[in-house]
């Protein structure tokens, strides 16, 4: 249903042009779920914005994003508007910037449904109340005429979620949908999304840095680093055999509730930091921080190496790793 082929996203920055996302390809079928994880700044949100046709002005992209046999990258704004919020819904990473401070939340949730002709005027209030209730806003009737600044961080995020789900999209793109939510509400929201997937065959791209959330909610995972995919696979296979050195570092940095109580304790980190997008090196993007780095990593970009059926990693040194 969604087929992304060799997507490149280029940005014009103060330090010159840079490629923020490079040769990214993946497929998402109806009713399926895919997770994207990776370090802050690796290109996850830009990828999502590209699918929505909402890339920033200083950017341009190449490749193809095929949705229901149309290449979204070549559609004009009018056609994109019909798809955006209707067939493809998105939960944005930053609720406060995506909500209009001057309108009540009720009005904002109603807007996409009216725009895409999903409900009649007379039913609209009932539908909005229903959505508010579904995402766990207490006392929807009292809250429907609140303004965004009158809500807590997590309540705003839930208003965004209600908006994204209102038109029952075919694909939901959820960019860090539950970061501002405590675990109990997070679970409620993720269960709600699961129901929509089961009931309407909705597909989902879930972007999160919370590996627990990803592992429990998607069928397939893409790990990105420096704008490229470094590892990809079915969730169970990938989690049970984390292969790329970056993925290994990522998964060992998680604080857990089971950790020892010890005030001297430090969390593991991956030494160094992500390269600036204008300074992403030739060859493997992770070379600067990888303990297994060798000459070839600097010269060439690694190709896909099959770890097992439906699980691949992009690394020259996989044999040294295990």
């Amino acid at each position: 249903m969604l087929d992304i082929k060799n997507l490149n996203i280029n940005l014009n920055t103060v330090y010159g042009d840079a490629t923020a996302v490079r040769n990214l390809s993946f497929k998402l079928e109806k009713g399926k779920t895919l997770g994207i994880v990776g370090e802050s700044g690796c290109g996850k949100s830009l990828t999502a914005l590209a699918v929505m046709g909402l890339l920033p002005e200083n950017s341009w992209s190449t490749g193809e994003i095929i949705f229901n046999n149309k290449n979204l990258l070549s559609l004009n704004e009018d056609k994109l508007c019909k798809i955006r919020g209707n067939s493809i819904g998105m939960i944005f990473q930053e609720p406060m910037t995506s909500l209009n401070p001057l309108h009540t939340i009720g009005k904002q949730i109603a807007e996409p449904m009216i725009l895409h002709g999903k409900v009649t005027r007379s039913m609209i209030k009932k539908e909005v109340l229903n959505l508010l209730d579904m995402v766990g806003i207490p006392d929807p009737l009292k809250r429907i005429s609140s303004f965004p600044h009158e809500l807590s961080g997590g309540q705003r995020q839930r208003v965004m979620i209600a908006m994204a789900l209102s038109c029952k999209p075919e694909i939901l793109i959820a960019d860090e949908p539950t970061t501002a939510l405590d675990v109990t509400i997070q679970k409620q929201i993720l269960d709600l999304i699961k129901d929509l997937i089961d009931e309407f065959g909705m597909s989902m791209i879930l972007i999160s840095h919370d590996l627990g959330v990803i592992a429990n909610n998607v069928q397939e995972i893409i790990v990105m680093y420096g704008g490229v995919c470094v590892e990809k696979g079915y969730t169970k296979k990938l989690i049970n055999n984390i292969s790329h050195p970056y993925s290994q570092g990522l998964f060992s940095a998680i604080p857990t509730l089971e950790m020892q109580e010890d005030s001297e304790q430090r969390l593991k980190t991956i030494p160094g930091s992500v390269p600036e997008i204008t300074e992403i090196p030739k060859g493997c993007t992770f070379q600067g921080r990888c303990e297994y780095v060798s000459d070839i990593c600097v010269k060439n970009s690694p190709n896909s190496v099959k770890i097992s059926e439906d699980h691949e990693a992009y690394c020259f040194n996989l044999d040294k790793l295990n």
Partner: peptide, 17 residues
């Protein structure tokens, strides 16, 4: 107030340390 909620785990670890 939620200082590390938008951070991936490796940066989060860096900030917490």
């Amino acid at each position: 107030d939620e200082p590390v909620s938008a951070l991936d785990v490796s940066v989060q670890a860096q900030v917490l340390n």
